[in-house]
Nucleic acid binder design. Structure first.
Lengths: 224, 224
DNA sequence: TGACATTTGAAACGCACGTTTTAATACTGA
DNA sequence: TCAGTATTAAAACGTGCGTTTCAAATGTCA
């Protein structure tokens, strides 16, 4: 089963790596089920049997792609990106939002495809989604909850934490998830570095204002 | 080609209608490409040839499903739902947000599936998306822009209108688009009538606070 | 170099899909 | 009732998919 060389990702231009790169693009572009192995190996310049030889099948290739994309994205843009020591809660929120945008839109290598891979998971979840939730999303949600709690400067019920956190995260992922609609309705909109910085600032400011308004407002299951 | 009877949707329990209903569920559940005609006709209790006979093929069946779902949803929950005469901008925003949630989560008949059908279009757009954008989304965006402009009580640049509107809409569609993640991370969360009312109130309040903070703040392409 | 494992290549297998075909059945109107 | 049409039914067609097979090519170490 195992080759003489270790599996650690070293070999520079080998077939395995080329397939991984090509598969990231194809999976992100067309989704798991629509993507075809023939399409992937053609883009990778490999033979059709190479996927089954190196990865064991389409499913395991997808898992490998997802892991590589996920770790690459967070390695390049951690949630505390560019944060000074002893940051204010508002600075922490900006870093959270900004790194999220960068991860979703400019992460180089496989990073760019991460957002689309996750969107695919939203629509047709595979076993990967459960892994990424416990690996990544749950810690991120807890991180965000603490930031929000600091900004509101009072303890939050689970209900409130849910509402506030989703209000913030939704403003980020929207631009990834609704990309096709945005591109059609606002053709002049692009997502270069400048626009992303502007977006991150806006989402942070907008959300902080919303959170400040919630400082003195308890939310129960039924609103008044 | 045409039958003796007119094509107007009258015949109560006929094969055509059963297929339409079944197809709405299957398309919403599994997407256009993953959905199979065999699966649809089995659920509808019809023969496999019936789809091609009544609709002309899988594509045209999808179009029919989408049109039915879209019109049913907006007929049941228009953007001005339950609005009093001479409403305030804040009331108009609540009605907009609330009807959006209801359309996405409780629309009966085919309405329930509408949100998921649209989500599918986000991921792999078909020709339907362009139609729905000009039919529905563009008017809705213009409607929202006017509400936002009233709340901010100053004219908005295109950039500002885009940012403010997406900040609001994103908070609604998030709950539909990220349904699979939310269900896994917050298993106790449901989307019954009470929760939807609470959500609509929260999103509206949160957004109004954000908008009020933007009253005196012009946004250019580059933030300070 | 030469034996041997690793990797590639081309062809084929088995399966599920959308669609078409062809015949049988149900319905309609004189 | 009985033509004639509309609808349903069953089987097959052609295609593309993931995967498998197995021989050829490539690399590795004595």
């Amino acid at each position: 089963m195992a080759a003489g060389m270790p599996d650690t990702a070293e070999s520079p231009d080998k077939t395995r790596q080329r397939i991984l790169t090509a598969a990231a693009e194809v999976f992100a572009e067309t989704g798991f089920r629509n993507a075809t192995i023939r399409q992937i190996v053609e883009k990778a310049g490999a033979n059709i049997a190479a996927v089954n030889y190196h990865f064991g099948g389409k499913n395991q290739l997808y898992t490998a792609v997802f892991e590589q994309a996920m770790s690459a994205g967070f390695a390049e843009y951690p949630v505390n990106l560019d944060l000074p020591p002893d940051p204010t809660p508002e600075q922490r929120l900006l870093a959270f939002v900004r790194s999220f945008f960068l991860r979703a839109f400019v992460g180089q290598g496989c990073g760019t495809h991460l957002g689309r891979l996750i969107l695919r998971e939203m629509v047709e979840p595979t076993a990967e989604l459960n892994r990424r939730i416990t690996d990544t999303m749950r810690p991120m949600a807890e991180h965000l909850r603490q930031i929000v709690q600091q900004i509101v400067s009072r303890p939050l019920s689970d209900d409130e934490a849910f509402l506030f956190s989703t209000s913030i995260i939704s403003q980020v992922v929207f631009h990834k998830h609704c990309r096709e609609v945005i591109a059609r309705m606002f053709p002049s909109r692009t997502y270069g570095r400048d626009e992303l910085e502007q977006l991150a600032r806006h989402v942070t400011d907008f959300s902080i204002a919303g959170l400040h308004a919630m400082r003195s407002k308890a939310i129960g299951k039924r609103a008044p």
